[in-house]
Design a protein around this nucleic acid. Structure first.
Lengths: 241, 241
DNA sequence: CACAATAAATGAACCGGGTTCAGATGCAAA
DNA sequence: TTTGCATCTGAACCCGGTTCATTTATTGTG
């Protein structure tokens, strides 16, 4: 109970992560081998892999967004998009919530500078995207308080403009069209969020203080969600042409 | 010119690719080692890697979409979204354009069944997305008839004028908002296209004949691009929710 | 306090993807 | 035929990651 053991484990884990970040910051992610990290941390490779499942996880262990949770946990009556927008705005208001600023900066620098890590971030996003798709489906969000029952049935063609997934593909059961629409929406949303993250990361990695980057992020979030809500029809008539 | 050498190279390459696909189809991508492939193809590992840069490229050597090209090559007056939609519809009309159907089916089965390969497809999409972002920027598409500026690099223009989307984030130079809007649009578009590809892949991998899958794809493309153009505002009022 | 039971760390071998290098082989032009 | 060059080969190597048997603690119990 005293946790003399637990404590040592915690400290070992922290030591590994710290020395890894230090080496990555000095020489770049790809130029450091896990053996070096382990040796510098006073352990052996196999021990390192007992604490972290992969080399990438040494950097990304804390970097994960779960959009699906935000959607399923939203208060009743709030649209998924609005919930997500507010979630991101909240993050923008307090970007340094985890760890201190300097460490955040170096971490983002390391990520942005390493193709392996950016690819890994992409991969994480892929997972969160599929979860989001399920959360967007009526039956998908398990413990959602609102919304009792959802037929696989159609959406109400709510008048204005050209709303949602209108023309049901012929010959496909309704559920499939719904599922595809949810998948497409999730893909668009998480792609937009990833882009916001990247922009934020790059600003911070370039030396901008997190608070300032957060302020800029606020505007970017609004831009992104306006695009998501209103569509890209403007793409035809760009200003300068 | 006779190319006795070239010919042998071509046949060797084809032999490697063929035997690799056969083994992958039999036992799955991850369960086959490159050594096995090389041996079965009558070469050695090093030779294999001279023909294909990676194990993944044995499957994905032909699978690549270039959306940026479609956008920059569009006829004048056509919006990028319309050009892309028509490009995908054209593909849907003739899905078996490359290779024969059976080979297409097994290849997609292999891809869909392998997490490594789906991740690789994702990674490819990341590349094409950044190219698309550049193509969507006014100065980005080099051979665009209109606005043939010789702008070398992205960052040059301090353009003024109303950006596509409405509210310019305060305190941000115009070029950045434009760039971000292009990046966001590209992210949304290529995410949607990837989703369409995945749906198509999965249908074909499940045994649906490519022509039939193409027919379904047509409806999906329209759904996806309607969503892209008109936005996701409908997400709030899902039908029977 | 001593003594198991248990958890964790170690070293060393192994695997698979990918690269490097010196040397063998063989087409091709002179 | 000779020379030159591209290609193939074998074998060693690197790195991320895993397996396994063994050792070294820590903890809970008699």
């Amino acid at each position: 109970m005293a946790g003399l053991r637990e404590d040592k484990k915690r400290r070992t884990r922290q030591a590994i992560a710290d020395v890894a970040m230090r080496l990555f910051a000095e020489r770049g992610f790809e130029a450091v081998t896990v053996n070096e990290i382990a040796e510098a941390a006073g352990v052996v490779k196999v021990t390192l892999f007992k604490y972290f499942p992969s080399k990438e996880s040494l950097v990304l262990h804390a970097v994960e967004e779960n959009l699906a949770g935000v959607v399923t946990a939203r208060p009743p009556g709030r649209s998924p998009l609005r919930a997500l927008r507010e979630h991101l705005l909240a993050f923008a208001a307090a970007p340094g919530v985890v760890g201190d600023a300097d460490e955040l900066i170096t971490r983002m620098k390391v990520i942005v500078d390493s193709p392996t890590l950016t690819a890994a971030v992409n991969r994480l996003q892929y997972g969160s995207r599929r979860a989001l798709a399920r959360a967007l489906l009526p039956g998908g969000g398990p413990p959602t308080p609102c919304e009792a029952r959802g037929g696989t049935s159609p959406r109400s063609d709510a008048g204005q403009g050209t709303p949602g997934p209108r023309p049901r593909p012929a010959g496909v059961p309704g559920g499939d069209a719904d599922a595809l629409a949810a998948e497409l929406a999730a893909a668009q949303i998480s792609a937009a969020v990833l882009t916001l993250q990247e922009t934020f990361f790059q600003r911070v990695a370039a030396g901008m203080p997190p608070a300032e980057a957060g302020r800029l992020l606020r505007g970017d979030v609004d831009l992104a969600f306006d695009l998501l809500e209103n569509g890209l029809a403007w793409l035809g008539e760009r200003g300068t042409t």
